[in-house]
C-alpha cells in the first residue's frame, strides 16, 4: 500500500502587514435622524457610534477588499507573487456564487491563487486568521492574504432604526506568512448554534429583499457574558497572562459590548493602560472587517506599535466566535 506524502511548513507565523479601506461617504447620526425616529444622543448612548461610512451603489464588496488587500501587501513590503492564497471573510456578498476571493486575487495580480470565502459573520476575520496561520504552518500555503470585507448596507433596511444605525461598510486585511518568532497565537474558536435564531435574515426589506435582524437583548447578553471568558482562553492558549496584553481589539459590535469585555479582562489582570479599540465610534459595525480595520486605524493613530501584544476576538451570527493573541506588525 502506498504512503501519501504529507507537507510541513515553518513552525512560526506572523502578521506581516495590515491595510484597510473605508468608503468616502460619511454618514452622521444627524443624517440618519432625518430618515427615522432617532437622534444623535440616543445612538451614542445605545451603541457609541458617532458616524459611519456607507459605500456608494457602484462600490462593491470586492472593490473594497481589493484596496484593503493591496494596502496590506504594500505594508508588508511584498509583491502579489509572494502570496499564493486569499481568504475573504464576509457574509454580505450579493449572491452565494461566485465567491469574492477569486476575483480579489485576480484583481490584485495573484496568479492562480488558492481562493475561498469564509463565512463566520462577525467572527470571520479571526476564523480566517487562524486558518491562514495553520495553512502556512502545515505547508499548504506560502503566504496568505486574509481580508474581511462587508457591504452591510445592501442587507439592512435603511428605515429599521435598530439596525440601520449600527451597520456600515468597509474592509480590512492582513498578510500572514512565516516568521522567526511566533506572532499569531493559537486560535480559540467555537459556536453556539442553539442561539441561531438571534441573528439572521428576514424577507421584509422595503423592496422585498432580505434584511438583517437581530434580537438585541439576547445578543447583548451573550456578548457581554460569554465573550470575555473565550478571550481569556485565547490568552491562556498563547501562554501569556492578561497583564501582558498591550491592546484589546474585540469585534466592533457596540461600544458597550467592547467596554464590557474590557472591564472583565481588567478584572482578570489586564492593565488599565491596555489600549482598547473603539473604532466603532467613527466606523460603525463592519462585521468581519472591523478587527483588521481597527488594528490599522490604531496603528495609524500611533496608539499601538510594532511588537505590541494584541488580543483579537470576533463574535456574531451563527452564533460563532473566535479569538487569538497576535504580535502587532
Amino acid at each position: 500500500m502506498s504512503t501519501l506524502n504529507q507537507t510541513t511548513g515553518p513552525e512560526a507565523t506572523a502578521i506581516l502587514g495590515v491595510g484597510s479601506f473605508q468608503p468616502e461617504r460619511v454618514v452622521t447620526n444627524d443624517e440618519l435622524s432625518l430618515h427615522m425616529d432617532t437622534n444623535d444622543q440616543w445612538i451614542r448612548d445605545r451603541v457609541g457610534i458617532r458616524e459611519r461610512r456607507f459605500a456608494g451603489p457602484d462600490e462593491r464588496l470586492v472593490d473594497m477588499a481589493v484596496t484593503a488587500g493591496s494596502k496590506a501587501l504594500a505594508d508588508a513590503g511584498l509583491a502579489p507573487s509572494d502570496v499564493d492564497t486569499v481568504i475573504l471573510a464576509n457574509c454580505t456578498m450579493p449572491h452565494p456564487i461566485p465567491n469574492g476571493a477569486a476575483q480579489v486575487a485576480d484583481r490584485i495580480g495573484l496568479k492562480a491563487a488558492g481562493a475561498f470565502d469564509l463565512n463566520a459573520a462577525c467572527a470571520g476575520f479571526c476564523y480566517s486568521l487562524g486558518t491562514a496561520s495553520d495553512l502556512v504552518r502545515a505547508g499548504s500555503a506560502k503566504r496568505v492574504l486574509v481580508i474581511g470585507a462587508e457591504k452591510l448596507t445592501d442587507w439592512v433596511d435603511p428605515t429599521d432604526r435598530a439596525n440601520a444605525i449600527i451597520f456600515a461598510d468597509g474592509a480590512g486585511a492582513a498578510v500572514v506568512g512565516p516568521a522567526e518568532r511566533p506572532g499569531i497565537g493559537p486560535v480559540v474558536w467555537g459556536s453556539a448554534g442553539d442561539l441561531v435564531d438571534t441573528i439572521g435574515m428576514n424577507p421584509t426589506g422595503p423592496t422585498g429583499n432580505k434584511v438583517l435582524y437581530q434580537e438585541g437583548q439576547a445578543v447583548f447578553r451573550w456578548a457581554t457574558t460569554q465573550i470575555a471568558p473565550i478571550a481569556l482562553r485565547a490568552v491562556e492558549a498563547a501562554g501569556i497572562t492578561p497583564a501582558d496584553l498591550d491592546v484589546l481589539i474585540p469585534h466592533q459590535a457596540n461600544l458597550r459590548i467592547v467596554e464590557a469585555i474590557a472591564k472583565k479582562l481588567r478584572a482578570n489582570g489586564a492593565r488599565e493602560e491596555m489600549v482598547v479599540a473603539d473604532d466603532i465610534v467613527f466606523s460603525g459595525n463592519t462585521s468581519s472587517a472591523s478587527i483588521p480595520m481597527a488594528m490599522d486605524h490604531l496603528r495609524g493613530a500611533g496608539r499601538i506599535k510594532p511588537g505590541d501584544l494584541a488580543l483579537l476576538v470576533g463574535f456574531g451570527a451563527g452564533l460563532s466566535y473566535a479569538g487569538q493573541v497576535v504580535v502587532c506588525p
Binding site: G216, Q217, F220, R221, T224, R256
Partner: peptide, 11 residues
Amino acid sequence: IDSLSMVEIAV
C-alpha cells in the same frame, strides 16, 4: 434605563 442596561442589571 434602556433595554441594554436592563440586560446588564438582569445578569
